[in-house]
Simulated scan of single mutants.
Amino acid sequence: MLLPSRAALPPLLQVARRLLLALAVLALTVLVVYADRGGYHDSAGGPVDLLDSAYYATVTLSTTGYGDITPVSQGARLTNILVITPLRVIFLIILVGTTLEVLAERTRHQLRLTRWRNALREHTVVVGYGTKGRHAVDALLGQGLSKDEIVVVDPQRAAVDAATADGLVAVLGDATRTEILQRARLDTASRVVVAAQRDDTGVLVTLTARQLNRRATVVVAVREDENVPLLRQSGANVVVTSSGSAGRLLGMSMLSPNTGAVMEDLLTHGTGMDLGERPVTRAEAGRSPRECPDLVVAVVRGSRLLHYCDPEAAVLQLTDRLITIREASRA
């Protein structure tokens, strides 16, 4: 599981930066030794050159200390005490710090993950972060959900990385497997959006999701109309046929381009007019839908959907919910 990344350097960049610091300390030590090479003795009997200085700096900073090259002059020994020893400490701090950084980051990630699991309730699980999944997330965010209330599940690493880059929690894995959906805490979710690439995958995901959670609202996108009954039998509350809906919108736009433009506007949240659902206010209860500030197109009463022209919807009840059209700025 991947939590949304915070403002920090990528791990490889952090390691590269520490490696450059270590190399800089090593290079500085080589220069210090080479500048005072006359104060060092090589057990092989030859003079100390640049390669010998690099060798001595390497074994000294790594605390290996073979003893074949040693400081013999007072100045070289004083330099080892005052300069090379602090450089050795800095070098070790860089190396140990890298290890501690990795361990600390893992610990922080585990703590964040544990807190997230304990606090996650009534969230939305989006299976598939392709074109349909991303647009579904955009619509959910536009209707007031926060990114903390959305969990993405996708088998593709690129899609999971894209979701975390967008600030969402993401789970990498096959959503047809129970353990993958359990990582997304689907058992405590209130909504499930299935936007799989294949219809048969959507059926399996729906069956698995419904097995884990009987009360959640499951919305599934499929390509073909013939798979709609199968999805409903599998436990989907709403099935959206992408090919059929696109075809109907195409036909509508052909006969009436303005009608098609209006429908596209209603389906695109945040621009022009928005189609949404809201509860009836106390001031609206007992009144006609035509008296509401928004344009009411349907009334949800219990488990029934009443169109605005239905006689039963002539008087609103406080427990009703309204399907309305309103300006995007007021949504």
Rank of each mutant, 00 (worst) to 15 (best):
D187W: 02
A165T: 06
G270M: 06
S288V: 06
T58V: 10
V220A: 12
A54Y: 04
P279R: 00
R290K: 11
D138S: 13
A44Y: 10
L20V: 08
I323P: 00
P229L: 11
A285Y: 05
L204H: 08
G251A: 10
S43E: 12
L172G: 00
L82T: 11
C309N: 12
T208C: 06
S62M: 13
R290V: 12
T99Y: 14
Y40L: 05
V171P: 01
T268F: 07
M263C: 11
V228S: 03
A8H: 07
S43A: 15
L267P: 00
Y66D: 14
E122N: 13
Q110H: 09
G130V: 07
S245W: 04
A104P: 00
A314S: 12
R88M: 13
K132L: 15
T99L: 15
L103Q: 09
A170D: 03
G302S: 07
L111T: 04
N237G: 08
T79D: 11
T259R: 10
G270L: 10
T241Q: 07
R183L: 15
Q14N: 08
T85S: 14
T217Q: 12
M1G: 06
L120M: 13
S73F: 10
G260N: 02
V192W: 06
G45E: 09
T114K: 11
G286S: 04
A261V: 00
A298K: 05
Y56T: 04
V25C: 11
M254R: 09
L82H: 05
E291S: 15
R115Q: 13
A162P: 01
Y34A: 09
T60V: 10
A285V: 01
G67T: 05
G38H: 07
A285I: 02
G202L: 02
G39R: 01
L305K: 08
L186V: 07
T29P: 01
P311E: 13
P293F: 09
L113W: 13
R287V: 00
D225F: 09
S288L: 08
Q197N: 14
I69C: 05
S146H: 11
Y66I: 07
L230T: 13
V169T: 15
V228F: 05
G302H: 07
E312I: 02
